[in-house]
């Protein structure tokens, strides 16, 4: 009988520690100045909403605020997929009065990133929509290995996709992500100026001639060929419905690299026909090598050149 008590003690201690740890981590998360904390704790009212993946981080907020005199909020994140962004945009509109303008870098329609989606578990307590979405996407995640048609596992019900429920089961697991770590990084400082500060290195400049052709993949292997574009359209429609002026752009690439993207024009045409909106192509708009951190990302210097161009072209109002 004594042994049973020890098992109960272990289970209780594990449970209490997990909940207590979760509570402490949540309080730390709420102290952060990270963008999603600000969004879910009512500190993100803005005039200009900026949307993209890591390439969207070049919407350098301090400079935009300086040249427009308006408040900005950037929803972009490394490896962001458009379906997750769609949920975040909906959450933003549910919580704030609509911004006057939204600028979207459409090249984020190149991936589905379920791993990142699960990382947003840290914010799932703030949004039922987000929590449901994470559970739904987790169920689509593969087991990590290709299943042979001769595998016995095929004759049994699939047990995959439980990670979405993990955050309910363990509150510590909820904060097991890069998203939480980044939130801690911005615990005492703002993330508004989060942008590459380095200059592309000579090795990369030299290697560009040897690169294979790059292809913006519209993910024909996903369950629905148009899944990504539908999400983009939903973002655009939601914003337009609320009276937001939406601008679609393709942010700059390092020009010799941009030449290797064989289907950029086809991709642009596809987005335009799906959303019914013009896509402003700035893929080769910055030519100064010093303005790039790598092939796909401008640094601070390049971002300022690009944003000035958006402003003078009337895209950034």
């Amino acid at each position: 009988m004594k042994k049973v008590y020890w098992i109960i003690a272990l289970l209780l201690l594990t449970f209490i520690g997990d909940r207590l740890g979760g509570r402490i981590l949540k309080s730390q998360l709420e102290k952060s100045q990270f963008r999603y904390t600000r969004m879910y704790t009512g500190q993100a009212q803005s005039d200009i909403l900026l949307v993209g993946n890591s390439r969207g981080l070049i919407f350098y907020e301090p400079h935009i605020e300086k040249i427009t005199g308006k408040k900005t909020f950037n929803l972009s994140y490394n490896g962001m997929s458009v379906d997750l962004m769609n949920e975040l945009v909906h959450d933003y509109y549910d919580r704030y009065s609509p911004p006057a303008q939204m600028i979207v870098d459409v090249t984020m329609c190149d991936r589905i990133n379920d791993q990142l989606t699960i990382g947003f578990n840290s914010y799932s307590t703030y949004s039922e929509n987000l929590e449901d979405f994470i559970i739904e996407r987790a169920e689509n995640m593969s087991d990590g290995a290709k299943v042979s048609k001769y595998a016995l596992s095929r004759y049994f019900p699939s047990l995959k996709g439980n990670m979405g429920h993990g955050a309910k089961f363990s509150h510590l697991f909820r904060y097991n992500s890069e998203i939480f770590q980044r939130a801690m990084f911005y615990r005492t400082k703002t993330d508004k100026d989060w942008l590459l500060d380095r200059v592309i290195n000579q090795n990369m400049i030299d290697a560009v001639v040897d690169l294979d052709t790059y292809f913006i993949d519209l993910k024909p292997d996903t369950t629905d060929l148009n899944y990504l574009l539908e999400n983009l359209k939903d973002i655009v429609d939601t914003a337009k419905e609320k009276g937001t002026d939406v601008q679609l752009v393709i942010n700059p690439y390092y020009p010799p690299f941009a030449k290797t993207i064989t289907n950029l024009s086809a991709f642009k045409a596809e987005v335009e026909s799906f959303t019914g909106m013009k896509v402003n192509d700035y893929s080769s708009a910055v030519t100064d090598v010093k303005g790039f951190g790598d092939y796909q990302h401008l640094n601070k210097y390049g971002a300022k050149i690009y944003l000035d161009k958006l402003r003078s072209d009337g895209i950034l109002k």
Binding site: L10, T14, D143, G144, L172, Y175, N176
Partner: peptide, 26 residues
Amino acid sequence: NPYFRVVSFAILLWLIAFFGTFGSNS
């Protein structure tokens, strides 16, 4: 030591939950 056992097992479970990378990697 049953006290050490309970605490060390619980700590291991917390560490796995907080640091683990899940997704059935082979």
